[in-house]
Each structure stands twice: as C-alpha cells, then as structure tokens.
Design a protein around this nucleic acid. Structure first.
Lengths: 341, 341
DNA sequence: ACTCGTCGCTAAACTGATTTAGCAGAGCAT
DNA sequence: ATGCTCTGCTAAATCAGTTTAGCGACGAGT
C-alpha cells in the first residue's frame, strides 16, 4: 500500500525551514514564535506536496494512534451490529479517528487474542460492545486506557451506553392506553432467565418495569402474561395461540420483541383474525421485519446508530462517566387501533 | 491504552545479547548464525517479560502493519454486512492481521476520507466490498497495494469474490423440476434496471440466466414473469396477487429474493391458499426471515461468511487474480412440494 | 559598553523496532 | 607467520515523526 509519499522533511525543505518548524506549524502548536510568513510557507509546501503524516511514525513518539477499537462479542449473527458500527464509524470519522474491529465470539481464547491485537496497535480507546443488552465482565488488560461499554454494563465503574428499555416499555403501554385499551392487554415474552440474570439480558426486566409501572399508574393490570423459552417467532406463535384459547380474548398484546410479534401475527392470520381490528399488537426493537408486516408493526426502535455514535462521543470527548440512556423512538405503524368493543 | 511494556532492548539486555540478536531470533530469521543457546535465552527473556513488539515501531521500518482495511459502501442498512465482516475477521485473525473498517456510504467525500484514513495507516491490503452484488469503480489511490473486491467486480483486473448466483438460479429451478413442477412455474422479481445495469446488480441477471438455462434444458419455459420496481415485500405481495388472477394458476413461484417471497406468502395467506400444498415457493438469499416463515422458505443462501473469509484469503495468501465464485447452498425448508394436480 | 529579554528559528535526541555492514576470534592452509 | 574463511555476534543507520534544549540577532534598559 502507499508509495512515494512526501515526508515532513520534504515539506520543511521546500518551505526553507526545519522539520521542527514544519511540525509545529502543521500541528498548530500554540505559543510558538514562528512568523506568519513561515506558517504560510509550510502550509503551502504541505499542500503542494500533498503531505500526509505517517501515522506509525507519529504514534511511535506520541503513543496516540487516532484509532479506536470496537470489540464486540458477536457481530455476525445479529442484524443490529450494523447500526452500532455505523454510528461508531460516523462519530469516529467526525473526530478523525479510525475504527479497528474485533470479535470475541464469547470465546476466552479469541478474547485474549483480540485484546492483544488492540494493545499491540496501541489504540486510543476501546468501545466494548455486547449485541444483546446485558452485564458483562471487562477484561482487565484494557482498563489501562479509556473504555466505554456499549449496550452493556459491568461491575467496574465505566461509562455505559444503553437503550432506554424502561422508557420504551412505558411508551408501549402508554400507546395502548391512549388508544383506549384497558383491562384486556396481554403480554407475550415473559422469560425469567432474561429478567433475572443481568448477564443474559437487561432489556427484559427494564421493559417489563416500564410496562407495569405505566399500566399500574392507570390502574390497569395485565390480563395475561405468556412465558416464552426464547424470543423467536415460533414462541410468539405458540403464545398467541394459547392466548386465543383463553375465555376472554385480549384486545391488545405487547410482545417483548418483534420476532415474537411476527409469530403472533402468524397465529392471528391462521385464526382468521385481523390486526388491528380484532386485536392490536405493539412491540420492541424495530427489526426490519416490522415495516414489512401487514399491517406494519408499531414498535419501539432500538436506536443502534445513535448508541454507536454516543459510545464514541463519550470515549473521545470524555464527559460523564455515567450511564447514557438513549431513547427508543416509537415507530407508529398500523398495528394499534382502538379496541372493537 | 497500554503501559510499561517491555521493549526489544529490555529483552536483549535480559538475554545478555544485542537488540539485533534478539530481533533476529524473535523473527525466526533463517541463515543467521546465532547459537541454539542464544535462541533459548532470547525466548526465555521475551517470555518472562511478556514482550510484545510495538507495531508502530515495526511498521515504521518495514512498512507492514499486519492490518487490512475493509472498505464498504454501506454496512448498516443491510443485514448481510455482518456475515461478510465476520468471515473477513476470522480469516484475518487466523493470519494474525487486524481489520480496520470504513464506510463510504456511496459518498465521494466520505470515500476520499476513508481512503486517506487507510493510506495514512499504511494498511497491507484492502477488501473493497459492496453490499449489493454489483460492478463498481475502485478509487485509483488504493491500487498501489493489494486489493480484493468483495461482492463486486470492477473494470480493473482485480481479484473478485462473488456469490454463485447463476448456480443458485439453476439450483432453484432444478429443485422445482425435481419436485415435479413443469409448465406452471412463475417468476417474481424481474427488474430490467437490475438485470441490465451491472452497476446496480449482478445478481439479478445471473440468477435469471441460471433459472432459464436449467428450465430450457428440461424443455420448460416460465408460465409468467412478474416485474417488480424493487425487491421488497410489498412488490412481492402485489406480484403474487396479480399472478393469482391469472386464468392458469402457477404450481410454483421462484422469487428473486426472500423479501419478495415474504410478500408472496402474505398474498397467498390473504387468498386462503396454503404453501406448499396449493403452491410451492423458492427463493434466494436466506434472509433470517426465511427460517421464521411458516412453512420455512426454501432458499439459496448468500454465503456471506464464506465470501468475507475468501476475500481475506485471496488478499493475504495471494493466489489467483481471478474471480472466485462462492457456492450458494440451498436451504431446503417446507415451501416446496409436488404440485397438487 | 554591558546585560537582559524576546524573537524566530534549529540541532539533536527520542520513540522501538529492522537491517546493513562489519568486527573479533578460531581454525585451517600455505 | 600470514592470509583466509567461517562462526557468532554487535554497532550504527534507518524509518518519519515529536519534543527538548538552546542559539544568534536584535532592541531596550542602565
């Protein structure tokens, strides 16, 4: 890669000045006493030669690489990684930083390898991301520099960026209440493992809290809560079918994520019921499928791009070591309407 | 990041040898005349000090960074990016390389910026990826070093990695023929722009060729071909509805991708028809949704992970400058059966 | 006339590796 | 004794920047 690039020495020579002078001018050093004319000459020379500093040489001396690492557990198996990466990439670019990506796949060997790779390259900071919102243990080796947790928390007091799942839970409940649903709202996707083990999920518990608090404030309680072993379409499908056998049919269901909601749609279709006329559905994530369903699924969107961006902002601009909650905007589509009766 | 790391000088001192000796031993240089005992001492010292070479210092001298760039047009908006990146990441790790990610978003300014960022960091090679299989123009600036095109071709004679869309087309047609479908096979997703402009898509034309050739070889021609302005669910939905109004209803449809197929499923559901009893559906991509549909959608999978891996292999292991076609495995699920009549 | 301070700039050290050129000593032949 | 080769190793240059220490000229103050 790369070829005959002009060096700082070339620039200095052409400007008729020393490397020192050229370096100081180009780095915009304050307090230097170089003349305005010297500045001009250096800038002109750099421009003419198309000078770009050699990052390796610079970071050898300064120990700064203008590169940050994005370490995640799993990037491939989730559609969400793209948004996190994109947001991080944008924010990094705005701050003239590059992004080095590694993946641990949850494997300690890979993790060790990933850590070594980024320490060897002396990155200026690390975004440590989880693909499912959860608590995790940060390898101590990277604690020597700035670290921001993305979509995760940890026992260490590190800055975190999380989606506001509780707010989203409240918003979902609020949307149903606002449409007139009261005592016949069901919930699909209870899962004790997700709710009780923060290392598995933080989202489940937070969403549930938001939903319950909002309903409780309106004096409403859930008609029924369906437990699901996983949050996959088939589990939503089963849960919905069981719900339909119940003597009082719900007027609305809240699904803990869009995949469950998709399963619910399938079950409703098979039962010959129409959304939202017979039953409203609301959900979380804004998976691409939410927009493809007929009618479109109303859902609180995981703001992945915002989150990725936020993580890099916190990392590079410093700021509070606290947790940032990024709001989950409600995407209103056609799946929620007033109850029929 | 990082702290008091041992340097090569530390290792040499502890081994009672010169930096030169230590460097040569650790790099496994052939033809050196250092004693077996000297080797031992250096290895021991490096081990004891937990020595790791400083990548910046090394690449300053060698112009090698053990880092490759993954440049893509769009990573976030497609679910497929993850697979490409994951494959590339795995192959890079196996070869002790790190991956620097940039995104151009199809914007020339961003592209220029991305190129500068990677040239400044002296990456050892570039994987230039497109998220939709297509032809593109590679910025000349990166042609100074090794480049592999991923999911793309270009006018320059560069190695490319592409999915075998033509083979997949043949496989899809073959699967329907094997189930007994003959003269009532319809196609959803014709799109002249995609088929005729390689800068938009290479997949459309290749899939079509594969389908036609295979059907022709069996003496079969398509019952009907539906054109779609885009390959989104709503277009598949419309196309399927029109197809159902046709006097002779098809026994099978080939959809040009899974999103179209999803739309077709929706239309069939609304029409009260059952897959695969009333009609078989087969498709391309293996979008996650294919596995979630009821019945599961048979589809030729885009082998993203394999492709990402292949690109890095070609880049780092050298090899042929030719085009690699990566096979698209057929995922057989429940959407194909023998025709009813 | 001498000191002092400021201005405008530079030489040289330094970062941590790789690589080139070459040195000291041993063994052997002449 | 001299020259030669081979062995085992090292000093120093080099990569391209940043940073420290300081130099010469000039003007002002005493």
């Amino acid at each position: 890669m790369g070829r005959e690039r002009a060096t700082l020495a070339d620039v200095a020579r052409r400007a008729g000045l020393s490397k020192t002078a050229a370096s100081m001018v180009l780095n915009g050093r304050e307090g230097t006493r170089l003349s305005a004319e010297a500045h001009q000459r250096v800038f002109a020379a750099a421009e003419e030669l198309g000078y770009r500093p050699n990052v390796a040489a610079r970071s050898l001396r300064t120990r700064k690489t203008a590169t940050i690492a994005f370490v995640s557990d799993i990037v491939a198996t989730t559609r969400f990684a793209g948004g996190l990466i994109r947001g991080a990439l944008d924010a990094a670019r705005e701050r003239d930083h590059a992004l080095l990506i590694t993946e641990t796949q949850g494997d300690p060997t890979f993790e060790r390898y990933a850590i070594e790779a980024i320490l060897d390259r002396q990155v200026d900071g690390v975004v440590y991301a989880a693909m499912a919102t959860r608590r995790l243990a940060v390898p101590p080796a990277i604690l020597g520099g700035p670290v921001v947790l993305l979509n995760a928390t940890s026992p260490e007091p590190l800055p975190c960026v999380l989606p506001d799942d509780e707010g989203a839970g409240a918003a979902a409940a609020e949307a149903l209440l606002a449409s007139g649903h009261r005592d016949r709202i069901a919930l699909i996707g209870r899962n004790l493992e997700k709710e009780q083990d923060p290392e598995v999920s933080l989202a489940a518990d937070a969403r549930l809290r938001g939903i319950r608090a909002t309903l409780a404030a309106a004096g409403v309680s859930l008609l029924e809560e369906s437990f699901c072993p996983e949050w996959l379409p088939e589990h939503g499908h089963n849960a919905m079918r069981e719900l339909l056998e119940h003597p009082t049919r719900p007027t609305a269901v809240i699904c803990m994520n869009d995949r469950l909601a998709f399963g619910a749609y399938q079950a409703l279709g098979e039962a010959g019921l129409t959304i939202p006329d017979d039953l409203s559905v609301i959900s979380f994530d804004d998976d691409p499928i939410a927009a493809w369903l007929r009618p479109g699924l109303s859902t609180a969107a995981l703001p992945h791009e915002q989150m990725g961006r936020r993580a890099v902002e916190v990392l590079l601009d410093g700021g509070d070591a606290a947790t940032s909650f990024v709001p989950m905007p409600m995407r209103r589509r056609g799946s929620v309407a007033a109850p029929a009766d």
